[in-house]
Design a protein around this nucleic acid. Structure first.
Lengths: 353, 353
DNA sequence: TCGATTTCCTAAATCGTTTTAGATTTTTGT
DNA sequence: ACAAAAATCTAAAACGATTTAGGAAATCGA
């Protein structure tokens, strides 16, 4: 089956275009043109073309993509920057992007930032130096100005999941505010009144901020009071401990709310785990609803109600936008800024029995 | 904070080493040497050095990594090939590798193969053409001969999770057979006798084969009969349906075993889901133990007993082996073949009440 | 048969960096 | 003051591809 492939590797010495040219007594130009499928266009004799292609096969020529990229400025590579590729949300996004990239002849370089500005900046820089053709990024801490500058420089890029006000760059996000409202309204419809929220720092991440905003708005519309003690805000890198501590404290003071709204899948998991450790019953003691659904929320005990994001769609739209930029097709201002709808998956964790 | 960075991007025109040289009236060589920290080594005047570095700063010179890689043959990039980056096991592996790579100045290109030989071959080829410095790969369908050839060609690479007999390449795997035996023995110790197994095709994947082997061995040692009807084997790309069908059939025939051993985390999740749909009680009707532990098995209903793989360790060892190859440090035959121990996390799904 | 066309091909420049092999200038010792 | 040694620096080649601008040979039309 792959005997052919094996041979490929064996002879991995290094055959260049010049070698082929020399072998056949023709010019490098000729060989290059044939290899790049420009034979017809340049009126190259069909027989000569065949001779070249045969030789390419025979010597198992393999292009040096570095040389090619260096010369042409195109690398057929795109960068993907997210906070953590091990987070299920991002790994699914990355996977989908990878698939689309593969189908379109692109490779993907993936970087995790851990929500760290410096790392994010360094990574963008590095990817640029590597001359990636474009970038799909879920930015932690940069801002509109930064990306506008990038945009002015015509560096193809699309922001996902998070974006900034007054940004001219392309972006694909979801309707976080509606999602949060939907979550809170669902809780309210189930009769919960004392509602807490578990969110994550840095709060200026747009998705988080919008969810927070949606939460407050829904609470206000329902004329419910927001109790600051029930709003637990934890840092990205010490989530577990801080959630544990806060919940323990509230629990020992018999001051837990009736329900918690958690702002991402990690927070939801962690919260679930910690509530269990405290033997707090869900949903009878405290209900739980999370932003961002994950396969296994369906079979946890109890199963967890969550706002679902259209992961595949996000990736598709982002990739398409990026490709358009790379191919220099222009995109109207409206098309550049995509906001996708969310949905809710209602499960046991919010259903009063 | 990142005003400096912003400026960097603004002037993203393209400043080359020649520009700097010209600007200062010195040679490209000089500039290159200074930039590469070889000033002292080449006895370059300290003042001249400073002038160069200042200019580099002033013009915001950024190296063209393609040109550099093209010239030197080193790209400071490694490839990671796995079957599916969205699978939690691999996304964790990838994340850890990425971290290690970052600390060592490498970037990571990630590829998913979907257990498809052709795709895998194409990806290896592509990564080679891109001149990655090395490869960490969980190979689906290639064989010892292939990798030996790669090894003979001195292309740095490390296999993880799966390996082949008589392979000279480096590899980091876990003790699958012991893991499987441990799983089966645990079931037996809990009093289960009728034990089934859910595995995945292609079966020649070494990790799967070894797990299967461990299963049979443990059964044999315990003098238990293996019922072929309880051995469900499903293809990678139609897992869910096939598991559903098989379980439904067994269920309708009242012929379910007392326990199932599932060979990877996806199979475990799917099996759990389907058993639930059939309203089969775990563990009272059927117990469940899985190979490869995942965070959430701890809070599913019931929580699931699983064999845990030392994910971080696998990544670390693999990366170290790769780095040694890249740096041309030699590694003894023994060091090249690493097998890590596994452990078991016992939870509700296998505890008879 | 001869100029114009068409057909087919190529020399050489170029991308940005590293590195080899040596050149130039300064300093030193006597 | 002059050769040798030391201190600084540089020209040019090389990596492997693409592309520009054009050249040689064959064919055509009259």
């Amino acid at each position: 089956m792959y005997i052919f492939a094996k041979m490929n590797f064996q002879m991995a010495k290094k055959v260049s275009i010049s070698d082929i040219a020399e072998c056949l007594g023709v010019s490098k130009t000729l060989v290059s043109l044939v290899i790049n499928g420009k034979a017809e266009q340049y009126g190259i004799n069909a027989q000569t073309k065949k001779r070249v292609l045969d030789k390419v096969e025979e010597l198992n020529y393999r292009p040096n993509l570095l040389a090619q990229g260096f010369r042409t400025g195109k690398t057929n590579t795109i960068g993907v920057i997210v906070s953590d590729i091990a987070n299920r949300f991002y790994s699914r996004i990355a996977r989908k992007i990878e698939d689309l990239a593969w189908k379109n002849g692109y490779s993907v370089v993936i970087c995790s930032t851990d929500e760290n500005v410096d790392k994010e900046l360094q990574q963008i820089k590095l990817l640029q130096e590597r001359k990636v053709d474009g970038l799909i990024i879920s930015s932690s801490q940069l801002d509109a100005e930064f990306f506008n500058t990038l945009n002015d420089a015509h560096f193809p890029h699309v922001l996902i999941d998070r974006r900034f006000e007054n940004m001219t760059s392309s972006s694909v996000v979801i309707d976080n505010q509606s999602g949060a409202q939907m979550a809170v309204n669902h809780l309210i419809s189930q009769g919960y009144r004392k509602i807490g929220m578990i969110s994550i720092t840095p709060q200026h991440i747009s998705s988080i901020r919008e969810r927070v905003h949606g939460f407050y708005q829904a609470m206000e519309l329902a004329e419910l009071e927001v109790n600051p003690l029930w709003n637990i805000d934890v840092p990205f890198d010490n989530m577990e401990n801080e959630i544990r501590n806060s919940l323990q404290q509230l629990h020992s003071q018999h001051n837990l709310p009736e329900a918690f709204f958690t702002l991402n899948n990690n927070l939801t998991s962690t919260c679930l785990m910690q509530l269990r450790e405290l033997s707090v019953k869900i949903p009878s003691d405290v209900a739980l609803i999370g932003f961002d659904d994950v396969l296994y929320f369906d079979f946890t005990n109890p199963s967890i109600t969550a706002i679902e994001q259209p992961v595949d769609l996000i990736s598709e739209q982002a990739f398409n936008l990026l490709l358009k930029q790379i191919k220099k097709n222009d995109v109207t201002k409206e098309e550049r800024s995509i906001c996708l709808p969310i949905s809710i998956n209602i499960r046991e964790s919010t259903i009063k029995r």
